[in-house]
Amino acid sequence: MSSHTHKEAVPYNAPAGRPALRIAFASGKGGTGKTTVATNLALVAAAAGEEVTYLDCDVEVPDGHLFIKPEMMSRREVTAGIPRLDMALCDVCGKCGEFCRYSAITVIGKKVLTFPGLCHHCGGCMLVCPVGAISEKAQPIGSVEEGAGRGVRFVQGLLKVGALAAPPVISAVKEAAADGLVILDAPPGTSCPVIETLRDSDFVVLVTEPTPFGLNDLAIAVEMLRMMSLPFCVLVNRARPGATQVADYCADKSIDIIAEIPDDRRIAESYSRGEMIIETVNGVRVIFEGLFERLCDVAGAARRGTRGRHIEGAP
């Protein structure tokens, strides 16, 4: 049972009557270009007149700020509940210890031990305790910062060093979402933090690269999205002529490839300097403008429940 400290969000004038369209950028493999794509798309969308909120949900290593370079205006602490035991009430029945799969609360003999470092903050021990001996104690696990840069409203979460559970921090980041276009930059992989980022998004873009590792992890991410019943498409980064394994896979699985970004040393060099590649490398902006246009179509259609045949994902 996680709880967050609620404070006033940064004022944001969302266009009236425009519900948020939430598009998440995920990948199986790390380092495929989620942040590159998400940040450049955010700028292109803002230039097209959208009210854009960029949410950096990769709270273990948020790096979108390196590119958008926002001015931070507020910061709030995120806490999550850990069990606090009242031994005057506890009759050592052991139900809490049987429930906790992480052994964060363990009954040994007639003693009940808690291990805050193992707790995933689900609150289950409090629910199963028949005598109400367990209450919740707030433990700081991270922070959420809000600001703005390059015409984009910017929000990022940061998990405290040593803290175990990213999802409560990600959830707090998502609470800062506003109307307009919301871009969620997910962590890599397919574990709990990714699920927390992606669920309730309208559309997911899986950023991959045409390598055996990229393809292997893409297939795992595709399985995840199918289980979550989320509509999605694939974006191939560092695309090379002749490297067709991802395209072959997508064709086989009837998955739409929404865009390709070429494997170009100038892009890598510009990225490594923290620049926006739409502004520094010829031909990249037009790729992102096309991506933005298509995404608005397919994601908007997916949200309205009228998605086209080429869009993957169960209703």
């Binding site: 992480y102 052994s103 193992l118």
Partner: peptide, 15 residues
């Protein structure tokens, strides 16, 4: 092969 908390779980078993 516990994902986490192996020390605690094994200790409980040993007890």
């Amino acid at each position: 092969f516990a994902s986490a908390g192996a020390g605690v779980q094994s200790a409980k078993f040993i007890v």
